[in-house]
Design a protein around this nucleic acid. Structure first.
Length: 431
RNA sequence: GGCCCUAUCGUCUAACGGUUAGGACGCCGGCUUUUCAAGCCGUUAAUCCGGGUUCGAUUCCCGGUAGGGUCACCA
């Protein structure tokens, strides 16, 4: 029976993580699930100066938002006993030594004795990569027996946690040879490496907080949904066979392969993310959609407008905003003459004449109301005869009180005949 | 600078020696239209350059160029 696949996401909690960071998590998660293995998360907090609990919390929060749930959770600082033990062993075996320093912050650090050899490993995405380790020198693996440095701690942790596939960013390629050196000195098997292409910002530079890359949680705050974010991230640097682009998490798991990961870097494109978001929003059931908007906007939402909202809003934020703008007419209207006349383009007398005529037309309709199409059938002949712009603009603004809104027929079905008549009368009066 | 990685429309990408180089986002145009959206249709747009290999290169090899990564007592 083949060894069970274990992948890991190993971020350091030294800041808010961006899309590039989480794309790594997406790939590691997808691959683990595809192989029916385990996905684990390890918080690399060996840098005690810069690691902050709030960043760690943010990582877990984001991961659970994205539904990238790990089988196991670790914190690197929790493995201190093993680190010390393995460090001592390395020193005892002569593979590492305590070095007296003339520069730097400490008098003594622990260095790895570089065997000055050639390391070749097969990257699952790029193929064979060869390094000569000579120019690495005797690199530092710990500040002291109890303060291991990244290169050393990752090696021990990955081994102890049974990690079989190290899926990480391309920026780690040049770290790989020294990690392999440590593995060899410790007698560990080298895992399979898969170095992902970098995610770049619009400026073509590596995505970074300094350059304005957003924390992923910010997208959530801006009304992006996890389904869309996962879908977008998965397709940034990877592509399944065929032209399909919209996927659920389970579909992605089914299609995922390391072989189809891109080698070249990709740019994070918010426009495309927005499109994915809208598509995923549109695919939700009305109930699911309503509850998302309700949770996001912290407001109740009229179930009747859900289909309209779905069509118009690309993000939950936009939907929430429309509750007050495009759909604000549900709460009532106050109408300005300037709006009713489209800033004077329609003569007030003409507008009020049409409004009164429309009121008469509506008056004779059944009280239970018509469908949107029904109202259109009722009004259309009159509007066409009198000039659609002159008739429909005053009608729509009288009913909506807004420059932008759904069409008047739709509004009619939503506010009902009586309320509509009241609004029309009030508008006509104001002219 | 040394070492390493990479290179198809503006962007994300398909092609695994033979295609009019396909799709998607965006852009632009049209249709629809009372507004704003949405929707539908359409247009524009790419194999970095130079050598090989081959009957035939986006595809394989070499070189160049460009971009990126990395050279910490950060991860």
């Amino acid at each position: 029976m083949p060894q069970k696949v274990v992948t890991r996401f190993a971020p350091s909690p030294t800041g808010l993580l961006h899309g590039g960071n989480y794309r790594t998590a997406v790939f590691a998660y997808l691959f683990a699930r595809k192989m029916q293995g385990e996905f684990i998360v390890r918080i690399e907090d060996t840098d005690k100066e810069r690691s902050k609990p709030e960043y760690e919390d943010n990582i877990h929060e984001t991961l659970s938002w994205l539904a990238l749930l790990p089988e196991r959770n670790y914190r690197q600082s929790g493995n201190a006993v093993r680190h010390r033990e393995q460090l001592e062993q390395l020193i005892k075996s002569g593979a590492a030594f305590v070095s007296q320093e003339t520069e730097g912050e400490r008098k003594e650090v622990i260095r790895f004795k570089n065997p000055k050899t050639t390391i070749t490993f097969t990257d699952a995405i790029r193929g064979e990569i060869t390094f000569n380790t000579s120019d690495l020198g005797d690199f530092v693996i710990a500040r002291s027996l109890d303060e291991p440095v990244f290169h050393f701690a990752v090696v021990v942790d990955d081994y102890d946690e049974g990690v079989t596939h190290v899926i990480r960013g391309e920026d780690h390629i040049s770290n790989t040879p020294r990690q392999i050196l440590i593995q060899q000195a410790l007698g560990y098997e080298t895992p399979i490496y898969a170095h992902l292409p970098l995610v770049l910002g619009p400026d073509r530079a590596k995505l970074s907080k300094r350059r304005g890359a957003k924390a992923l949680t910010q997208y959530r705050n801006e009304g992006y949904v996890a389904e869309a974010m996962i879908n977008y991230l998965a397709l940034l640097g990877w592509h399944p066979e065929g032209n399909k682009e919209l996927f659920t998490m389970d579909e992605l798991v089914g299609e995922f392969t390391l072989e189809r990961i891109q080698k070249g870097a990709g740019i994070f494109d918010e426009e495309k993310l927005r499109w994915f978001n809208h598509e995923h929003l549109k695919r939700m059931t009305d109930d699911a959609y309503a509850s998302r908007v309700r949770d996001f906007a912290k407001k109740d939402i009229d179930p009747r407008i859900v289909p309209l909202l779905k069509e118009r809003a690309a993000t939950l934020q936009e939907a929430a905003d429309m509750l007050d703008t495009e759909f604000g007419f549900l709460q009532g209207v106050s109408c300005e003459p300037a709006l009713l006349t489209n800033k004077g383009k329609i003569a007030p007398a003409v507008a009020s004449k049409h409004l009164n005529a429309l009121a008469e037309l509506l008056h004779d309709t059944p009280n239970e109301g018509l469908t949107s199409q029904g109202y259109k059938d009722l009004i259309w002949p009159y509007a066409t005869a009198e000039g659609r712009g002159d008739v429909l603009w005053p009608l729509r603004t009288a009913l909506s009180g807004r420059e932008r809104s759904p069409d008047p027929f739709t509004i009619l079905t939503l506010v009902g005949k009586d309320e509509a008549l009241a609004r029309i009368a009030r508008a006509a009066q104001s002219l």
